[in-house]
Nucleic acid binder design. Structure first.
Length: 202
DNA sequence: TCGACGATTGCCT
DNA sequence: GGCAATCGTCGAG
């Protein structure tokens, strides 16, 4: 199985990100509809990308074939998931930032007792991974062939309007809006400000 | 081998 | 709105 976004070149990762909105990601009994994503190219022009400084042991998956999962741990306690895009040998990935739980709602609630509303169940990269019960073990597994813990499927219904905006907190490459979300969706976390970290000097 | 930090979240005031 | 928790990864020495 090959999807359109899998055949786009690495420099068109923003287009791939757009196309992935509305797709359904299923893992461990829970299905979420992707409502917010962010593109990362790291072709030497994206300082925010893990792949910006070349291949390392961690980001090697980003340089692999499209349709696989790139999972990494952040702040020592949460996981974030990326959908690898672009041709093999060139880094490109789409970060899954938020989703709407469309199946396995009870299971999702049990996994995230801190969520007060259903819209908060997967309204963030780390939250989404908790809901799907995915971790580092899912890194470098396929989202397409069903052999991995997670499976990605096309939208069940027509995807609505899409909005785009620049990634907050990134000074370079801010001229290109690489964050995409479904207009008006309550699960989208795009409204959140990027928390500036306490750093010496400006 | 060591030191610093991050594509975050949730609890505190 | 502010900040602590917590550790794998990376770059420098």
């Amino acid at each position: 199985m090959t999807y359109r976004w899998m055949e786009l070149p690495a420099e068109a990762v923003d287009t791939a990100a757009r196309e992935l909105l509305g797709w359904r990601l299923t893992a461990n009994g829970v299905t979420v509809r992707l409502t917010e994503v962010e593109a990362y190219s790291g072709l030497g022009t994206d300082p925010a990308s893990h792949a910006h400084r070349g291949v390392t042991n961690r980001n090697a998956v980003m340089f692999g074939p499209a349709g696989r999962l790139y999972v990494y741990q952040i702040y020592g306690m949460y996981f974030c998931a990326n959908i690898v895009c672009g041709e093999e040998g060139r880094a490109a990935a789409v970060l899954i930032r938020a989703g709407e739980v469309v199946a396995g709602l009870e299971t999702a609630r049990a996994r995230r007792p801190a969520a007060r509303r259903d819209a908060d169940l997967a309204a963030g990269p780390g939250k989404l991974m908790q809901v799907l019960d995915l971790n580092r073990a899912a890194n470098d597994t396929s989202l397409i062939d069903g052999e991995g813990p997670a499976v990605l499927a096309p939208p069940a219904a027509a995807v609505g309007a899409i909005e785009a905006g620049p990634r907050v907190g990134v000074t370079s490459a801010h001229d290109v809006p690489w964050r995409f979300w479904l207009t008006g969706d309550p699960t989208v976390s795009a409204y959140r400000r990027h928390t500036p970290k306490p750093r010496a000097r400006t």
